[in-house]
């Protein structure tokens, strides 16, 4: 084992441990702000993995997009909402947790068996390293042109949709009188809800 390989191995172990620990924290901690910050750590460690794989561009993009945009947005969302709500403890919640854990473990076992048992066809080409940006650009304008352009339409429509969902609606005056009260709702009336239990009916 050369020194470089040793450094690689150690940093892989460190990154992996960091990633798994942070990901577990995201799921298990009850304070959502902690979860959000830990998610940032997960993203950073993934970016580190990319660096190890000699994919510098992707690593940079990962940090810029996921940490810089997505994660910050999540934090903004959490802090703007900032609503405390105490949830009534669900009885026998542990049962659900155990079941979920079992399913997840099973899935993990299946996937690891699959990963280990499959003869992966590894590409023989050398990693392109720093030439990646040029190569990605070439692909974007040749064989990946269609998805690239389609993604622009997708982004446009996501933008439009986000504005629609977020904007404050004004209720136009030109609408006929009787529909003003129901504006921005489905024309179908909601049906009368049947109380789920007798207690509900009495209260």
């Amino acid at each position: 084992m050369t020194l470089a390989e040793g450094v690689q191995l150690v940093s892989f172990g460190l990154l992996a441990a960091m990633m798994i620990a942070a990901a577990l924290g995201v799921v298990l901690l009850s304070n959502i702000v902690y979860s959000a910050f830990l998610l940032g750590i997960v993203f950073v460690s993934i970016s580190g993995m990319y660096v190890l794989l000699n994919a510098g561009f992707v690593a940079a993009a990962q940090i810029l997009i996921y940490v810089g945009a997505v994660n910050v947005l999540i934090l903004f969302g959490i802090m703007l909402v900032n609503k405390r709500e105490d949830f009534a403890p669900v009885r026998r919640a542990w049962l659900g947790k155990v079941a979920t854990g079992a399913v997840c473990l099973g899935l993990f076992a299946l996937l690891s068996t699959m990963v280990l048992g499959t003869p992966w066809a590894l590409s023989s080409e050398a990693a392109i390293g720093d030439g990646a940006t040029v190569m990605i650009g070439l692909h974007f304008f040749s064989d990946f042109l269609l998805p690239f352009e389609l993604a622009s339409v997708l982004l446009l429509i996501a933008l439009v949709g986000a504005i629609i969902l977020a904007r404050r609606e004004f209720i136009p005056d030109e609408m006929p009188q009787d529909t003003v009260g129901d504006a921005l709702k489905l024309p179908e009336r909601p049906r009368e809800l049947v109380p789920a239990s007798r207690d509900g009916a009495e209260s």
């Binding site: 998805p147 389609l150 339409v153 997708l154 429509i157 949709g161 969902l165 921005l184 709702k185 489905l186």
Partner: peptide, 25 residues
Amino acid sequence: LVTIFVALETLSISSYLLTGYMKRD
């Protein structure tokens, strides 16, 4: 595969937006 996925997401995201279009309801 990439085209498939991007197209699928275009369809899906537009569908989510359409589904929630009556946002007061």
